[in-house]
């Protein structure tokens, strides 16, 4: 029984063309997914649609029996679906601590916020050290950790990470990956978009290949890299850049 069902979704920006063109995908609980595909395939757009930031033109998104398609972002978040965008979307002039507290904006119970804050600090000790610093002054890796930490403040069921290691040095990226690994072990359903396909697929249970707004291929992640057609079609470039990173 999947927790997230995306059926026949098309979506685009403003009066522009469809970016997603009848995309369908099912996500099962406590599994992890890696979405790969060329630029413009609609990966980030898919996340925005799920998060309620962009309403689909047709089709539906159902999370645990509830339709998300017409909901505002805050209503989607309240159901336990959390999105960390590519640019992290932090509040640059708020402190690390304030950013984390903003992550629990929808949580009314103060003691619960405190509890989760402690848990995030435990998981990302660097954030605890920098608690009073403005988020805008953190390094790239620290900002990514803050974005992930902030997402955990809502105690999500499903976490979407859009290229969390983009622009980070290899050892920092490695650190981020191991933290994603940790989230997985906590029972979270994680969906990740990753340019470094090799690394992303190693991390995930299931691989999804997007192209031109639809799912072209999906399957157990190990299989994908062996499939010569996929390798040639979609991973040729991504995989090779993955090696050099």
């Amino acid at each position: 029984m999947p927790i997230l069902e995306i059926t026949d979704v098309s979506a685009g920006y403003g009066s522009g063309p469809d970016i997603l063109r009848g995309l369908s995908l099912e996500v099962e609980e406590a599994k992890s997914y890696c979405i790969i595909g060329p630029n413009g395939a609609g990966k980030s757009t898919l996340f925005k649609v799920i998060a309620g930031l962009l309403h689909p033109r047709t089709g539906n998104v159902v999370f645990r029996g509830e339709s998300l398609a017409r909901r505002r972002p805050d209503q989607v978040l309240a159901t336990g679906v959390c999105f960390v965008p590519q640019d992290q979307a932090l509040f640059p002039e708020m402190s690390v601590r304030e950013n984390l507290i903003m992550g629990a904006y929808l949580v009314k119970d103060r003691s619960l916020v405190k509890e989760r804050l402690a848990r995030v600090y435990e998981m990302f000790p660097i954030l605890s050290e920098r608690a009073g610093q403005d988020a805008g002054k953190l390094s790239g890796g620290q900002q990514q950790m803050l974005a992930m930490g902030r997402a955990l403040m809502i105690d999500p069921i499903l976490l979407m990470l859009d290229e969390p290691t983009l622009g980070l040095a290899p050892q920092i990226a490695q650190q981020i990956f191991s933290q994603v690994e940790q989230l997985k072990s906590m029972g979270l359903t994680v969906v990740i978009i990753e340019q470094n396909a090799q690394r992303g697929l190693e991390l995930a249970d299931w691989g999804v290949v997007l192209d031109l707004g639809i799912v072209r291929f999906e399957g157990p992640s190990e299989g994908i890299l062996e499939d010569p057609r996929i390798r040639e079609l979609y991973l040729g470039k991504a995989a090779s850049t993955g090696e050099t990173r």
Binding site: L53, L77, P85, A89, L90, P92, M102, G103, I154
Partner: peptide, 11 residues
């Protein structure tokens, strides 16, 4: 500070 981010955290 960041309208998009505010939306994402549920504002």
């Amino acid at each position: 500070q960041n309208r998009a981010a505010a939306e994402i955290v549920g504002v």
